[in-house]
Design a protein around this nucleic acid. Sequence first.
DNA 1: GTCTATAAACCGATAGAC
DNA 2: GTCTATCGGTTTATAGAC
Lengths: 213, 213
Amino acid sequence: MAQTVASSSEKKLSFREQQHQFRENAILDTVNRLLAQKGYDLMTMDEVAAEVGIAKASLYKHFESKESLAAASMTRFIEEALAMARGLSPHMGALEKLKSVVRWAVRIHLSGTMPSLPSTRSSIQHALLSHQPYVQRLEELTEILGEWIGQAQQTGELSPALPGEVVLYTIYARSCDPVADFLKGGGAFSDDDIVELLVHTCFEGMAKAPSCL
Amino acid sequence: MAQTVASSSEKKLSFREQQHQFRENAILDTVNRLLAQKGYDLMTMDEVAAEVGIAKASLYKHFESKESLAAASMTRFIEEALAMARGLSPHMGALEKLKSVVRWAVRIHLSGTMPSLPSTRSSIQHALLSHQPYVQRLEELTEILGEWIGQAQQTGELSPALPGEVVLYTIYARSCDPVADFLKGGGAFSDDDIVELLVHTCFEGMAKAPSCL
DNA sequence: GTCTATAAACCGATAGAC
DNA sequence: GTCTATCGGTTTATAGAC
């Protein structure tokens, strides 16, 4: 009996916690979209609250500040990237893994739900680097990518003469490349085309013919 | 006599106009730097006035709004790019001309005086496209680059299978690529190294060894 | 044209009732 | 936890004296 009550109480608590998590995920979904559309500085807390369908004060019960809200959004995104990277088949070559990561990121970017901060210029960049959960996951991802970069350089799939940091930063930057937005705005290409074109120019440059199209 | 007076009057007017132009150029220099450092949304008119050394109200005697100020800054920058492109030796190959443009832009980017708006996300992007002087010059530059791209594709220096828009957008995007900021922040490379690394990955990709380093 | 002072709007964050 | 109402600060832009 006592066990049943305890179990029931546990279930109820777990259910509330689940609802809490569900609500927070809904908030973060909205934040991801708004960050993708307008960026951090132009996104307002009023707007987030209105789109989620709650009052602004309620938003502050979940996240203590605008900065921590954006940091949570970015952290969740990196977690998804980590899960994606770790889920890649171990039979893939290192270069193919790296391309898969860029493909995945560009596709999310094109769907309008990548909470990327475009550059060093955003006011949140500094706050993010003080947000331990974000930094930690970013380091994990960097370590995974760094390993693959080293492997691809050993096999010659990537030039060993190219500093690893250059490859890493380039991969990160191509994942939220404005070229994708421009091409999408032009309307001449499908999302799949844009993904392949971007991955091609990123790794093969512009002298070699793309395998797609 | 009348001529002398007229001439003197003309000279005085011209001098005042020159001073006016000089002041406006000083303002635009400051704006370029602030736009490069913080971007449009985070740049404030108070800040611009303070750094120029004039009162904010005086700023509004030169430019009627923050939007028109940023638009003037961007327009002047495109004019410099046009002058640079038109000044390239006619003996250069088309590909070498394109690379020279990217080299020039990345160098300015690294110097911290490129008034680039990082992406589609800035609130000024829409206003810029309604600013006729800017749009016109951007079209002129696009036409020049488009011609070179076509030539480079005919000689096979660039892949003819790659859509021209992809090449054009890529060149524009690499000119203010955040990779340059990351590498500069890392401190391991000189500005010249960064320029060559970026130009190399842009045109040759990451499989081929860079000619520099 | 340059200044000081201020208007008008917006935004992040909080108080306090329920 | 959710709401309404509001505070405090910042920003763009302008009024008016000089």
